[in-house]
Design a protein around this nucleic acid. Structure first.
Lengths: 193, 193
DNA sequence: ACTATTATCTTTACAATGTCAAGATGCTAT
DNA sequence: ATAGCATCTTGACATTGTAAAGATAATAGT
């Protein structure tokens, strides 16, 4: 192939450029034209490989999902049994994205909310729904006369919030199918302990 | 106030217009100029009330959070004790956004992933990480010789995924503070039952 | 009541972007 | 060798965010 005119593998190069842009300056800065420029190609060249910007975005997401899968599989394979595989996968699920928060924001679009889990100090939370949850949870502990360690409390509160948030995220995804009303059961389950 | 020139409460009107746009055609379609047009005001008028587009977006988010809080508070207030308040809040947490998935997408940007929780039929999932989790969970059941109902399995699988996803989302938010390594504990906790 | 100040809004302008259309270039199969 | 196709370029246009300059209305101070 000639050096200038035909790029060789522009499609993959555009995906890589896109990932680089997202890593360096967030999704807001991702544009077809910038990705094209990084590949030293005209601004309309991407249209030979992607129908529109969204198709590039989807391709990038597919690539990230692939990497994600590799890490999860490795975690599962490295575990002696399924139980530890589950725990390990959970850990890597979190770790993969925590290492690159921009990926998570890109894939799932997380918000910038400041919330303080700790109980030992009074913090100002800027997300009232979390405050309410925290307060209610504390009331629950008092009512039930449960005496938990700082650590236990943080774990449980985070579990409650994470489950609510995670379930909501999943429920808002178009294709989730369940056969019964799982919500109630899950939230009460979380408290029986 | 004069009718044309000074709007009266343009700031709130822009927020309302923004919410309407998001409800009707998603966040991608939200633009300062459209919101301004809906308020019958020139395209630069919003700059008297918002520094830039992001400030309008943040104001809209604050409004949504307010409504969200109202629903959660109502749920808590209507509950006889804190335990049921927690369960109720969880239910309304989900319900609020499920009623308007666009709000959740706007607030937290959820993806369109198709995943099938059900075990009684073989579905094609388009999100491999979920498949892996499902498989591993099934292995776990076999290894431990656990015999659970379809309903129990679905609940538990969803709980696992939701927790992982929710914890990740929360961990990727900038300001979350914890005092210890909660991840491990949470994932193993979820299995002890 | 009059004027100065400020908040609000308009008009104009520009750069970045997504997208389309027309054409150029190089590859490949017949 | 040539026809057809994939790939890329150039040029154009509409949408958008944003800045600057000025117009208009409300308000405060005198």
């Amino acid at each position: 192939m000639s050096d200038n005119y035909h790029h060789g593998n522009l499609r993959q190069a555009l995906i890589d450029a896109g990932i680089k842009i997202i890593n360096e300056s967030g999704e807001a800065n991702l544009s077809l034209r910038k990705a094209a420029a990084m590949c030293k190609v005209s601004h309309a060249a991407p249209y030979a490989h992607f129908k529109d910007k969204n198709e590039l975005v989807e391709a990038i997401k597919a690539t990230v999902t692939e990497k994600f899968m590799e890490e999860l599989s490795a975690a599962a394979d490295a575990s002696p049994d399924a139980e530890s595989a589950l725990v390990n996968m959970g850990r890597h699920y979190v770790a993969f994205f925590v290492r690159r928060p921009d990926y998570f924001k890109f894939m799932f679009g997380s918000q910038n909310i400041t919330a303080h889990i700790r109980f030992d100090k009074q913090y100002e939370n800027d997300y009232p729904p979390f405050d309410l949850l925290k307060e209610t949870y504390l009331k629950y502990l008092v009512e039930k006369r449960l005496d938990k360690s700082e650590e236990e409390k943080e774990t449980e509160l985070l579990k409650l919030w994470a489950s609510a948030h995670g379930i909501t995220a999943i429920a808002c995804m178009s294709g989730v199918e369940t056969s019964f009303d799982w919500e109630d059961k899950i939230f009460s389950d979380l408290l029986i302990r």
